[in-house]
Design a protein around this nucleic acid. Sequence first.
RNA 1: AGGACUAUAGCUCAGUUGGUUAGAGCGCUACCUUGACAUGGUAGAGGUCCCCAGUUCGAAUCUGGGUAGUCCUACCA
Length: 984
Amino acid sequence: MEKTYQPQALEQEWYKTWEEKGYFKPYQDGLDGEGYSIMIPPPNVTGSLHMGHAFQHTIQDALTRYKRMQGKKALWQVGTDHAGIATQMVVERKLAQEGQPDRHELGREEFTKKIWEWKEESGGTITSQMRRLGNSVDWETERFTMDPGFYKAVEEVFVKLYEDDLIYRGKRLVNWDPKLHTAISDLEVENKDVKGKMWHLRYPLADGLTYTDSEGNEKDYIVVATTRPETMLGDTCVAVNPEDARYQHLVGKDVMLPLVGRRIPIIADEYADMEKGTGCVKITPAHDFNDYEVGKRNELPMINVLTFNADIREEGQTFNFDGTVNEELSGFIPEKYRGLERFAARKEIVADFEAAGLLVEIVENDMVIPYGDRGGVVIEPMLTDQWYVDAKTMAKPAIAAVENGDINFVPKSYENMYFAWMNNIQDWCISRQLWWGHRIPAWYDDQGKVYVAQTEAMVREKYNLDASVNLSQDNDVLDTWFSSALWTFATQGWPNLDDPEVAKRLADFHPSDVLVTGFDIIFFWVARMIMMTMHFCKDGEGKAQVPFKTVYVTGLIRDETGAKMSKSKGNVLDPIDMIDGIGIDELLEKRTGNMMQPQLAEKIGKRTKKEFPEGISAHGTDALRFTLTALASTGRDISWDMKRLEGYRNFCNKIWNASRYVMLSVAGEDVVEAAAENGSKIVITDAMKAACGANGEEAILSLADRWIISRLQFVEAEVTRHLDQYRFDLAAHALYEFIWNEYCGWYLELSKPVLWDENSSEEAKRGTLGTLVRVLEATMRLAHPFMPFITEEIWQQVKVLAGKSGDTIMLAPYPVAQDAFRDADAEADIKWLQDVITAVRNIRGEKNIPPSKPLDLLFKNGGDDDFRRAEENQTFLKKLAQLENLTWLNEGDEEPMSVTQLVGDMEVLIPMAGFIDKDKEVERLTKSVEKLDKEIERVNNKLGNPGFTDKAPAAVIDKEKEKAAGFARDITKLKDQIEKIKAL
RNA sequence: AGGACUAUAGCUCAGUUGGUUAGAGCGCUACCUUGACAUGGUAGAGGUCCCCAGUUCGAAUCUGGGUAGUCCUACCA
């Protein structure tokens, strides 16, 4: 064994072994319990994993390994998502960079082929990252949302929902991304605060009408206010509030739309706000969501004046309020605006208003502008034909499932967020004008009539259409989230319920147990999964099945300053770099190379150099995982801290060296070092086994042995309890505390006096060696879900010595605390021992006595337990506190000049004739008395308060009384000591 | 505008149903290369638990109000 832990030497080897042996499979020998499943949130197939993934994967893997070790058929379902827009964009950009023909030149089929090629090329990144992270996913059943089976599920769902009247098609105003040329859902819109302008424009009244305004001015126009002047080309009316006295008399009259010359009415609609702008609002139903509603209410026509690029059309498209084509209305657009880009058109139109003397004023305006979260350009409300899911209907059971507790959110507060959104849910636009995705299984005849079924042949059969009817399939694909909403059941082979294998998997693994995901996709994914799953999956009694019983919502990983990690900020960290380390040059290249905004490169480079002047050193997977685990407090964002990672790398080293000590003790220095030199494992001999009592040889347990075994039960119970409550941070903390402080800090030290004492009996040594080995072995199993690699490595080395067998720790049983091994007496005795040793060390520290200098110790004022403990633990005391003689002072004995510490009622004295500074010692003791005085005053105040003594529970009062008495005793002793020192 | 979450040591965070002398890791100070580990050991310093008011015998913890920050939703001609 090496002197320090070398993770890179063993991690990848172990993973390979595990995978080859099939230990990740839910169906294998030894797993006889019930099914347990976690469905991975499928990452984008062409992406790569970031720290957030590493975090979520660590939790999922810990849970899976934990349940697997408990004997359950544990499935961590793995797979990836085709990520429609994102992937299509990446490939389009790639083609452009390589100077290849663009997608329109290639055509749909060829372009899709290119995407598949790209998927093959880049798809391995994620899976190899997952292997490095030690993720125990079932690779054999890996799924991709565009796989044939999954595709089939998606079509089935679409057709069924259509038949159930939960999907419909309609001409509606949608969020249109003019760059990507597709509709997007309202969730994909990012609203940004911007400082913009508002233009006040004059619209002249028709027919030479005039009126007198409130200030007595005669006017032949009204003034509208708008933030989007260019849409005036599509105005179909002006609205005023019905209550607005200023304009009531104008309702029913017309205005002449400037520049266009269209006659449009002035109507009364409560949407017009008297307080806002001028109180008159122009209505453009085809280009604004609010106006669209006004238009529908008032049965106004709609004029679409924009192309899909958001340029001005040659001629407006005219529709009636119900979306049917309006043949009468003119869609005339003045020639000079035709073909202009929307913002250029705005400039032009404003200029023309000004030139015509119709621009009244320009007002600065704080406003919110919608941007597409993918394309990054301003979203345009656009009148198009789209497919929708009736989300309102589907949300009802989905809301109920959370209300009645079939689904629990951890932390619970996210349920409010879920309800708020679900109760106010809008119909979900599921069609996307892309080529990459599941093509919508709908066909149209020449008249535009819709037919829905999986294939054209099925359409013909279902609707009785013979070959004379021309059919063409809908060109659009479905929103990516439509398919990922089916993730929990489609991954298991749904809808092939007749296949016994599928039926079995669904029975074992559906509903899944936990979904581990970020709060940012609760609406996108979690809510939609619940809706879809409950509609399509029923249990034996026909009751709707939920996709998962628990949703564990993780926080975000932020950088050390608390900022979100993002590529454009250049503060992203690759989990693999935490594991393997990375040089500064390579890190710089990674962060600044191939950037969307190259101008940021310099700033990012500087910042990176400052933060990581030496690059990042290697820490190993286990350290990374343990760090993430330890930081996983529920629902809280994590500020990533390299120092923390370093600390847990040290923890790995600590574990490694503890096991090294154990092996040195069992096998001897020569054997251990020889093995280290050859890079081989230590060969366990029968003699070693016998020395540890692996065959049940007689052994005597020391107090320390009994103590650590008792503490092991405690930590086993703690870790299990915390895991069951998803408190990974507390579980990690309990483990850390036990391993570092109790096992390494105390127990290993306590084992030395036994093992190194020539007078120790064979049985005593066997007891201690056996305990060293057994506790280590159990601790490795306890820690395995968090730190899979180091625990496997050490476990393989010690399992036989601990009398255990098995091919892998992955399938070894998870430790269960046993009350029979708890030993309150041993714990109390060791507590006493620790207190005495700490007292002595404390004195050494205070008085600057080197640890190597042996001291004499005097006990005073002890009870029966003190006498016994001192007697029984002489060896431990002498060794750990570096003491020469232990002596009891009897009542009335002469007391040498000493420094004192209290251990319970007992006093511990270190004679220090010659070294002691009387004044300083008095000062030190007086300070202690003062501190105690304050405490005792507080407690006495409490006890003197009748309100407290009357109302507080007896146990609490007793506790306080005890405290007061204890303080009083301590004070007496300290004062006594002060007097003695003064008297010397 | 509505809502959620957060505020505890220099930093990052724990603190279970109100009763602790308020904890951990890192950092800091002093000492120590003792035969697992200097990626180590021992000891120590360090806190107005954001502010105000209330409930209570008792508040870091519960209630109300405020301040600051983060985020979500909605809307703004």
